[in-house]
Simulated scan of single mutants.
Amino acid sequence: MLGALKKNPVWVTLLLLIIVAAYTVISTTSISEKGYVNRALNEVDYNKHILNSQNGEVSVTSLDGKRIKELFVPKPTTFAKINRIALWINGNKAVRVLLHTDNEGLQGPITVYFNPMTKQVIGYDVLE
């Protein structure tokens, strides 16, 4: 079997694509809501204005190209580029965590977006 894989790289490529596809499906369908809420709280340094901090609203959302550019936290690193590529492979689906505040008129709800494949922060919604 291994000899056949070495002779025909198409099988290796196909196997890698299947693994990436399986990981993509698993990473967007099995979401630990509590884990993402805790990550979001950590990102905003447990802001004292957040109401009922353990009950953030977690959902999977699809981002269009313009929206991704607005959200991405600028980090000139190779990992940020990998994060963008992983998001593209994932069909631009992100995990959105919405945290309500006691001052939503001025501060607004805090929204943090995560890449479900890498579990890294993509960016934030900012109240304009």
Rank of each mutant, 00 (worst) to 15 (best):
G105M: 03
P76F: 10
G123T: 00
L63V: 07
D102T: 07
L71Y: 09
E104Q: 11
L2S: 13
A86I: 03
L51K: 15
E70M: 07
E33L: 00
W88R: 13
L51R: 14
R84L: 14
S27E: 01
T29F: 04
I50H: 08
T78S: 10
N8E: 14
I50C: 08
D45N: 15
A80K: 10
R39S: 12
N92I: 00
T111H: 01
F114N: 11
N42W: 05
A86G: 05
N55E: 15
G65E: 12
E70V: 01
L63N: 08
Q107W: 02
R39P: 00
N103D: 15
F114H: 04
T77W: 03
S53D: 10
I89H: 00
N103K: 10
V60S: 05
R67F: 02
V73E: 11
L127Y: 05
S59Y: 01
S62A: 06
N103E: 14
V20M: 09
L99S: 08
D102K: 12
S27M: 06
T28Q: 11
R96L: 02
K66H: 01
V126S: 09
N42K: 15
L2R: 13
D64L: 00
L5I: 15
K75P: 00
D45V: 02
M1H: 11
F72Q: 13
L106R: 12
T24V: 13
Y113W: 08
L71C: 06
G123L: 01
N52Y: 13
W88D: 13
A80D: 09
V37E: 06
T61W: 08
K34F: 04
L5H: 11
I122F: 07
A22D: 03
N83M: 05
V60R: 13
K6F: 11
N92C: 00
E33F: 02
H49I: 01
V95D: 04
F114M: 08
P109C: 01
G65D: 13
Q54H: 06
S27G: 02
Y23G: 07
N92H: 08
S59D: 11
V10T: 13
P76R: 12
T78W: 14
R96C: 02
G123H: 09
E70A: 07
I122K: 14
Q120D: 10
H100W: 03
Q120E: 15
F72T: 12
V37S: 11
I26F: 11
Q54Y: 03
T28S: 05
E33I: 00
M117R: 06
N8K: 14
A94F: 06
I18C: 14
N83I: 04
K7L: 14
F79A: 14
T78H: 05
V37Y: 03
V44Y: 12
E128Y: 06
N52C: 05
A21N: 10
L17G: 15
N52S: 15
V95Q: 05
R84D: 09
K66D: 08
L106Y: 05
E43W: 01
K69A: 08
I82N: 02
L87N: 09
D102L: 02
K48P: 07
H49D: 15
K119F: 03
K81T: 12
L14G: 14
T28G: 07
R39Y: 06
Y124F: 15
K69V: 10
M1T: 10
L71R: 08
P116Y: 04
T77E: 07
S30E: 04
K48T: 09
I50Q: 09
K7Y: 07
L99G: 08
H100A: 13
W88N: 11
E43D: 12
